[in-house]
Design a protein around this nucleic acid. Structure first.
Length: 291
DNA sequence: CTCCAGGAACTCC
DNA sequence: GGAGTTCATGGA
């Protein structure tokens, strides 16, 4: 992995990463794990995805599989934030091999091959939790719309090349806004769940940091279950995408269809820490293979 | 009109 | 402890 700094147009700091290991930006941001990045065409690449994470606006871009560009980013930012965010320190080539040697099933093999290059993004824990509370009984375009409106109204404004982007609002800010204002974002019955989550986090009845640091998956689940509107599926998504608990295996309506295509002997627990990564391949394959 | 969406709480038995 | 119902909203 060779990181080179350069200046893009309008003095935007950028880096180019050569010999970049096994990442597909398009799939990683298209697979439904993250609701805050969208395709853009600011620079001259085949694929560009721009969005806000950890209070910063960035654009990830690729022309081919083995190199990666990051705009509005220095080499130091990469080391401190984006390398981890993109899970580039993990060896996904080995993970894929391990998945396929553990569960020898043709459907899973096809899914892994189809999703090759997806990386589980290490998102902010509060953003992941709040986003997946909003996700329940909802579809991805509308989830993105609600989160976008929430950020625009309550997040902090971030300027980039003359346009404005917004950070994900803190639990504190959303709690102060109150349930009626959260409801006004068209969150429906989820408004009271969001407020409950904010309240328990602000009052330290639920400590996200403790969940992040705890190795026991059952402990993490039971902590998140304290929040109204958080069940097994929402908790699993939050833990997988926001707390680096890659043994989580979220099952939604799409994954129920996937499980019908897998042999009855399939047991995700055998995949251990790779279960969540396999799940994302299966979800992506099921959801997008027809479209 | 009905059905569905990265579900969970609630209400019955 | 499982099965069925309800909860908001908008697109197909």
């Amino acid at each position: 992995m060779i990181v080179t700094e350069f200046q893009a147009k309008n003095q935007i700091p950028a880096i180019k990463i050569q010999n970049c290991p096994y990442i597909d930006i398009f799939k990683s941001f298209d697979c439904g794990q993250c609701f805050r990045f969208d395709p853009v065409s600011v620079f001259d690449h085949k694929y560009e995805f721009g969005g806000v994470a950890f209070g910063r606006y960035v654009i990830f871009a690729q022309d081919s599989f083995d190199q990666l560009y990051i705009y509005n980013c220095t080499a130091k930012d990469f080391d401190l934030i984006w390398c981890k965010f993109l899970s580039l320190e993990e060896n996904y080539e080995e993970i894929d091999k391990s998945i396929l040697s553990t569960e020898k099933d043709i459907y899973l093999k096809n899914a892994v091959n189809y999703g090759k290059g997806i990386r589980i993004l290490k998102q902010d824990m509060w953003e992941a939790l709040c986003s997946f509370i909003i996700s329940q009984n909802n579809n991805i375009p509308r989830i993105k719309k609600i989160i976008s409106a929430m950020c625009e109204k309550y997040g902090e404004k971030i300027e980039f090349l003359g346009s404005f982007h917004y950070s994900f609002p803190s639990a504190n800010v959303l709690l102060d806004a109150g349930v009626d204002e959260i409801l006004a974002l068209k969150t429906g019955f989820r408004a009271k769940y969001i407020i409950d989550a904010c309240s328990k986090i602000v009052n330290n009845e639920v400590s996200l940091a403790n969940i992040y640091d705890n190795e026991s998956f059952d402990f993490c689940l039971s902590e998140l279950y304290k929040i109204k509107g958080v069940g097994l599926k929402v908790a699993s998504c939050a833990l997988l995408f926001g707390f680096n608990k890659t043994e989580a295996f979220p099952v939604d309506v799409w994954m129920k269809r996937v499980l019908l295509n897998l042999p009855s002997t399939f047991d995700y627990n055998r995949l251990g820490k790779n279960a969540g990564i396999a799940q994302q391949y299966l979800f992506y394959y099921e959801r997008y293979k027809t479209t």
